[in-house]
Amino acid sequence: MSAPGLQGLRPWIVQRISAAFITLFVLYFTLAISQFETFDFAHWQGWLATPVNNIAMALFIVAVLWHAWIGVRDVILDYVPPVVLRMFLYTFMMSVLLGSGLWGLRALFKLHVA
């Protein structure tokens, strides 16, 4: 059994599922904003405030960050052999990605309850 986050099959599956979701969401998102009568902040906010779009965007943020984490993890595994440096980079990248994710989700949540 590998340490958490350092497995083989699971991240590989997650990478593919998240890629499929990201593709579908980008298509849906592009189609949705192309229907806007005027492209302004009010329309954008209104679109995001509907529960379906809000949840879809939240899932999109999670999918992008998870996908990015696996990609970055792979690059680090390939190119950074020293364990200490590898651990530092993992921690740094995890902090950046987790911070970005929480910030994005907080914005979405605030919009939804507002």
Partner: peptide
């Protein structure tokens, strides 16, 4: 034995 980050999944 192959379900590990290196043995198989380093193949890109």
């Amino acid at each position: 034995a192959l379900d590990d980050p290196f043995k198989l999944f380093r193949c890109h």
